[in-house]
Amino acid sequence: MKWFYRCILTLNSTILLIVVYLIKEQVVLPIPNLNENCSYGIYVLSTVLFSGICLLISNFLGEDIIEGGIVDIEPANNSYLPSYLGYFFIALSVNNKFTLAWVFVLIFIFTFNSQTLFFNPMFLLFGFKFYYVTTDSGLKIFVISRKNIRSLKGLQFTNLRRINNYTFIDWRG
């Protein structure tokens, strides 16, 4: 299940690259009486829906806990956003479907094999935030959570789902 979820999460994290390309190329869905703005809205809404499905699937991952031993926590939203915006610039600069396909496959492979690049700005719409948590053993992990963390005092993560050894999602926050 974990491998499958990582594939789905990777696809979800990179799919906006294709959405931006389709909008840039003004690709309209082949549905009668559907204008381009409706098509673009469907593209964007489908990524939001897909993100929601990814969040629901995460409930089936293995459970984990981080309590005590947290020595530092820092927001990760700002550090990943520039990387994610890079996908937009790539999508805007790619000039054909063949190149887009190859670029997408390469980004997908790199994102899948990375330990922490499951940042998906669509999760922000569902109230999730992204954090780097450093444990007392020096391990720095990536946590996706609804918690609004301002202090280490009493901080516990008791309802985590493990995506991989370095990435966790706190689905219920």
Rank of each mutant, 00 (worst) to 15 (best):
K2C: 00
F4K: 01
F4R: 04
Y5R: 05
Y5S: 04
L9W: 02
S13R: 11
T14D: 14
L16F: 15
I18D: 02
V20F: 13
Y21I: 04
I23A: 12
Q26E: 15
V27I: 15
V28S: 15
E36V: 15
C38A: 15
G41T: 13
G41I: 14
L49C: 09
F50W: 14
F50R: 03
I53F: 13
I57F: 05
D64H: 01
G68K: 11
S79Q: 07
S83F: 00
G86W: 11
F89I: 13
N95D: 00
N95E: 09
N96I: 14
L100H: 01
L100F: 07
A101L: 15
A101C: 15
V103P: 12
V105P: 00
V105G: 09
L106F: 12
F108R: 12
F108H: 03
I109M: 08
I109D: 04
I109R: 08
T111G: 11
N113C: 04
T116S: 00
N120M: 07
P121C: 13
M122N: 01
F130T: 07
Y131T: 12
G138E: 06
G138N: 11
L139F: 14
K140W: 05
F142Y: 10
V143S: 08
I149Y: 12
I149C: 00
L152M: 06
L152P: 10
L155Y: 05
L155R: 06
F157Y: 05
T158W: 01
R161T: 08
T167V: 07
F168D: 08
D170T: 02
R172G: 06
R172I: 07
